[in-house]
Design a protein around this nucleic acid. Sequence first.
DNA 1: GGCCAGGAACGTT
DNA 2: AACGTTCATGGC
Length: 267
Amino acid sequence: MRNGGIALDLTLQSGQVFHWDRREDGSWEGLADASPLRVREQDRALQVVEGDEEVARNYFALDHPLEKIYADFPTDPMSARALEVCRGMRILRQPRWECLATFITSSMKQVAHIRSMSLALRKGYGRPLAGRFCYPTPAAIASAGEGALRACGLGYRAANLLATARRVDSGAIDLDAIARLPTADLRSELTSLPGVGVKVANCVLLFAYERLDAVPIDVWIHRVLLSMRGGRSGTATQLARYARRRLGPYAGYVQQYLFHQARVSAK
DNA sequence: GGCCAGGAACGTT
DNA sequence: AACGTTCATGGC
C-alpha cells in the first residue's frame, strides 16, 4: 500500500472530527467542508464511493508520509504500543473555521457530546447539502443569539463561540491569511480569540493548519505524559517541554496515537 | 445519581 | 509565574 495507507475507522473515531457517520456496510458518510463524501476502506486503501477523489485525498491527508512519521516515532513502550494499536490512523486536513469553532465547544466535554453539539449547530444554522448539513458559517453563528446557541447544548461556551464568530465574520481576524505565520505567531493569533486557550489552539494548529508538531495537552495526554516521565507530578508548562523534547518532529501524530490508545484502554 | 469530560478566564497567592 | 474557582451540560 502506497504511503502507509489509512485505517479509516480509527481515523474517524479518534476525536479529531465529530460529524462523520458509519453505515451498516462499514462505509462512512460526511462532508469535507462543502463536498459530500462517502468513503470506505479496503485493504488499507481509501475508496471513494461517492464524491470527488481529489477532495477526499486532500481531506484524509493521504500525502502525509506515514512511513517516515513512523520511522521518527519515539521508541518508549507507551509510544510503541500506541503505534501498534493505531497504525494507519491519519491526522485529517480540516476546514479552519469548522475546526476552530468545534474545538471552542469542546472544553470540558466528552467526545460523544461534542458530536451532539456539532449536529445541533449544523441542523439549526448550517446549509442543507445532500441530506446532510454544512457547518454553519461565521456569519450564521454570529447572527444567532447566545440563547439559541445555548439551546444547542453549549452552555457557557455559547458566548465564546458567538464572540469568536463575530471576529471572524467582521474580518478582525483572517483565518486564511494567518496560515502563513510561523507556528508560534499563529498560536498567539489563535489564543487571542475568545474561548481559545493553548490547548484548543494546538488542536487547531494540528488539525487545520498542518502543524504536525503541535501537541494539544488535554487531561488524557496529561496523564500519559506524567506516566511516561515516571509518574511524578508536573505543571502544564513542564509537560509541554517534555513532549517537545521526547515526541519527535511529528509530535502531533504521536500525541494523537497516545490519546486514542489511552481512551480505548480505559474502557 | 454522582462523577467527570480533548479548558478557558479570571482572581489570589 | 504558579494555583484555585467558576462556568453548563450530558454521557456513562
